[in-house]
Amino acid sequence: MVENRPILNILAHLVLILGVLVVAFPIYIAFIASTHGPTDFLSGLIPLTPGHDTWHTYMTMLTTGMQTSGMPPLSLQMMNSLIMALTIAIGKISISIISAYAIVYFRFPFRNLAFWLIFITLMLPVEVRILPTYKVVADLGMLDTYAGLTIPLIASATATFLFRQVFLTIPDELMEAARIDGAGPMKFFWDILLPMSRNNIAALFVILFIYGWNQYLWPLLITTDASHYTIVMGIKRMADVADSQPQWNYIMATAILAMLPPVLVVIFMQKLFVKGLIETEK
């Protein structure tokens, strides 16, 4: 702060409080809706104060789900989401760190070609090549499997670049010393590189977990069988009841449960989250 201007300070706090309210408002309304029984919505306006059906609504959704629209229990869907998020995060980190290691620490024919092929994946979001990718996965018989849900999303140019950047800043002397001491390439990787990139791995993990958990279009296409539904895509199938009023309390309870895990990750690992976000964009 350059100089003390009380009016500007008050203005700053007002802007921030307004921002916090706008951010929290939709969540508050959703949570309130999830605490009411179905009849409370007939009055024509969303209730603004908590109701008494919280426990019942959440327990029903978690244990039995919404049978009318063929939805499995949310506990199963959340489990699927967790499997998907963890597999994508760990998978992306693993294959990216070893390919960055190969690119930085080895010379081999086609090294540049490999680098450019990885670079191209950066330019091809799922949404753009959706139909042909779906066809490939269908031809490989991977519809309705965890492999189909995760493997096509696992290649990562961003993560490879991040690790390449990290490895380039690690002094060459370390590798010379390791070689003089008789360490082979894999020993050097396990005992020196991996521990040194621990922080970057953790930061990247936070970002990728959120990315994996929040996937929507891909699971929507790949899963036709309810046992593989993830919670983020399941919520849409619930809202799509033809011609009848949606069951708001159940839908909003699902929305709250769907956002809870990644939001908790951001709040409790804020430092790693910010680090991961800003580094992956460099």
């Binding site: 929305a255 956002m259 951001v266």
Partner: peptide, 11 residues
């Protein structure tokens, strides 16, 4: 202010 980033676009 930062946590909405974690909420899935679909949600």
């Amino acid at each position: 202010l930062v946590w909405p980033y974690a909420v899935a676009p679909a949600v």
